[in-house]
Amino acid sequence: MLVIRNLDVYYDKLYTLKKVSLHVKQGEIVTLIGSNGAGKTTLLNAISGLIRPAGGSILFNDEEILGKTPESIVKMGISQVPEGRLIFKTLTVEENLLLGAYSYYSIKRKREVKEEMEKIYKLLPVLKHRKKQLAGTLSGGEQQMLAIGRALMAKPKLLLLDEPSMGLAPTVIHEIFKYIVELKNLFRLTVLLVEQNARSALKISNRGYVIETGRIINEGSAEDLLLNRDIQRAYLGRDLDSEVKI
């Protein structure tokens, strides 16, 4: 569904992504793990068209999307839930969701938007209870759900999630990941997930990539990555070599 080949992104003369290649198949959840500053967010922004890569190609359903505007990329069916959620805090929950449907909204398709919104309300009832409330007054977890709901309003085929667990309590993180799987099955989505919380992310994923200073250094099925010693040491906070066998 999504095929990225040899993607290069430079900020002035400094590269943030170098010859990055990855692919996401229809219906998969793929996780990209890596530490701060590795280039995860840059990659998602390049896919969404927010930044212009210097070279390479990004194919979405066999169509080149490199160089397209963010508007047309949203229309093609790629939605991003940005890092830090970036919900419109002084607008109501309902207005936030409506703006999610901006890309196809017209007076004729008003009903469609309404139906989409009901679907999301049914899944995330918290949002329905608070639909007239200002989005900034929601709790962190609720704001994350709103950000995901807003992205789903655009009827995406591919959902890009940038650090959905950021700044949330562990129990809430668990819930968010549960919702991601549920939503994925319900809306028949394909998900590309970027996370620092590698363990929770890999647990719900099919495959994963590891990115370090702008290069992909490892890839494999989620199980393999969870068991890989280097990755356990670097990203899962576990060092088998120094553990004492009982």
Binding site: S48, L50, P70, E71, V74, K75, S79, Q80, P82, L86, I87, F88, K89, T90, L91, L99, G100, Y102, S103, R150, A151, A154
Partner: peptide, 10 residues
């Protein structure tokens, strides 16, 4: 409110 988020909405 937020230009980046606005662009991501299309």
């Amino acid at each position: 409110l937020d230009i980046k988020a606005a662009r991501l909405m299309g």
